[in-house]
Amino acid sequence: SDNVAVATQDGTVGDSGTTQFGTSIRLNSDVPVGFRIAVEDIECGDKLLSWGNVFGVANCDIQTGEAVYNKASVDAIEVSGRITTTGITENFVDYSPKYSSDSICIANPQRIIDSKSAPKFMGYQRDGDRGIGTRNYIAVVATSSLAASCARLITQRVEHLADVLDNLNGIVCVEHTEGARANASNTDIVLSTLAGFLLHPNLAAVLLVDHSGAKVQSTNIINYLQSHHDDIVPVTNQTVIMDGDPSQSIEQGVQIVHNWIVGANSAARSAHDVSELKIALQCGGSDAFSGITGNPL
Rank of each mutant, 00 (worst) to 15 (best):
G45C: 04
D46P: 07
D46Y: 05
K47A: 15
K47H: 15
L48M: 06
W51I: 08
G52R: 05
V54T: 15
F55P: 00
G56R: 10
V57S: 07
A58L: 07
C60N: 13
C60H: 14
C60E: 15
D61K: 03
D61G: 04
Q63R: 14
T64R: 15
T64W: 06
T64S: 11
G65K: 05
N70T: 07
K71N: 12
A72N: 08
A72Y: 05
S73Q: 08
A76M: 11
A76E: 10
V79C: 14
G81L: 03
R82W: 11
R82Y: 12
E90T: 15
E90D: 10
S96E: 07
P97Q: 00
I104D: 00
I106A: 08
A107Y: 10
N108I: 06
I113E: 02
I113D: 02
D114L: 02
K116V: 02
S117K: 11
A118G: 05
P119M: 04
G123Y: 06
Y124F: 14
Y124R: 05
R126K: 05
G128L: 06
G128A: 08
D129N: 15
R130T: 04
R130V: 10
I132V: 14
G133Y: 03
I138A: 00
A139R: 13
V140K: 12
V140W: 13
V141L: 13
A142H: 03
A142V: 06
A142Y: 04
S144R: 06
L146V: 08
S149G: 11
I154W: 01
L161T: 01
A162N: 00
A162W: 01
N167W: 00
L168P: 00
L168A: 00
